[in-house]
Amino acid sequence: MIRTNPVAGATPAPERADPVPAPDRADPVRIGDQLYDLLIRDLDAAGASYRVLDHPPEGRTEVVSALRGHSAAQAAKCLMLRVKMDKKRSQYVLAVIRGDARLDFAALRELLGGTYVAFADAATAESLARAPSGAVLPLVYASEMLLVVDTSLAESSEIFFNAARLDRSLALDTQDYLRIARPVLARISTW
């Protein structure tokens, strides 16, 4: 099933037939492992080129980038946001920007035609992402979310991100990422 995309001209993202359960605070490792396994199955099925990187548990972009041995500019920083569309409607957005960038709230608001943009509260963010903060994937596995990726992320040949766990990351070919994720691409960050 295809969900509609509120951005004019954007490609709709497919809805997952096998959703991952929301994180269980009593056992976040198990949920992270389930989402990680789903991610790997999806990447393998799509013929993606990636590398698995194990490292000490860390969710802060600058620190984990150093542990993985790459610049923060190659990190995919994932931000869970709530865009107020009008008085009664909101759209949850997963914004993915370079690790050394800052989100341009005004650009995202204008792109979506919203009235207000704010970070989603932690409980909602973890529920929608199916992962703990710091391990959010740059892919959408929840039908109620929209994926928007900053165009500057496409400048690297490879992107790095925590893979639903704080102790494991992926280095993923950027063109494979864009082909599989099918995000809305727009300039939504500043440096």
Rank of each mutant, 00 (worst) to 15 (best):
R179V: 03
G32I: 04
A120V: 04
I188C: 08
A123C: 00
L35S: 08
D44F: 03
Y36I: 06
L170E: 03
Q91D: 09
A120K: 00
F105P: 12
G59D: 09
L67G: 13
N5R: 00
S65F: 02
S143I: 12
I159C: 01
L166V: 05
A72Q: 08
K87I: 03
I31Q: 06
V20H: 07
A123K: 11
S71Y: 11
S189E: 07
A164W: 00
A17E: 12
A73T: 15
L35R: 07
T124E: 14
L147G: 03
M145D: 07
P57I: 12
R25E: 15
S71P: 15
I31A: 03
A76N: 14
D150F: 07
N162F: 00
Y141I: 14
R41K: 10
D150P: 14
A22R: 10
R98E: 11
D167W: 06
P28T: 08
S189M: 10
R60V: 08
P132E: 09
P132H: 09
P14W: 01
S90P: 09
T4F: 00
E110Q: 13
G99R: 02
V63M: 06
F119I: 13
R89L: 02
Y116V: 10
Q74D: 12
A45N: 06
T124F: 14
Q175R: 15
M145K: 08
S49C: 13
R98W: 08
A95W: 04
L153C: 11
Y50C: 06
L112N: 04
I159W: 00
R16Y: 01
T61V: 07
S156I: 04
I97R: 01
E62K: 07
M145F: 10
P28W: 11
S143Q: 09
V20Q: 06
P14N: 01
M80N: 12
D104G: 08
D86C: 02
L170T: 00
A48E: 06
T4Q: 12
T115W: 03
K84N: 09
S49Q: 11
D150T: 07
G99W: 04
L38F: 01
E110P: 15
D54S: 11
Q34A: 11
D37F: 13
I2W: 10
L108D: 00
L178F: 05
A45W: 08
F161G: 05
Y116H: 15
A125E: 04
D150W: 04
R3T: 14
S65V: 10
P132Q: 11
L103F: 00
M85H: 11
A72K: 07
D44G: 00
Y177P: 14
E15P: 02
G47A: 01
E144Y: 05
T190G: 15
L137C: 06
V184G: 09
A101V: 10
P21C: 02
V83Y: 13
S169T: 01
T61W: 01
R3A: 13
P12C: 10
A46S: 14
H70S: 01
A76D: 15
T61G: 02
D33G: 13
G99C: 05
D44E: 13
R182M: 07
L128Q: 10
P23R: 02
A186T: 01
S189G: 08
D104Y: 07
S127N: 13
I97S: 03
Q34S: 10
E158V: 15
P6G: 14
V83E: 13
R168K: 10
Y141D: 07
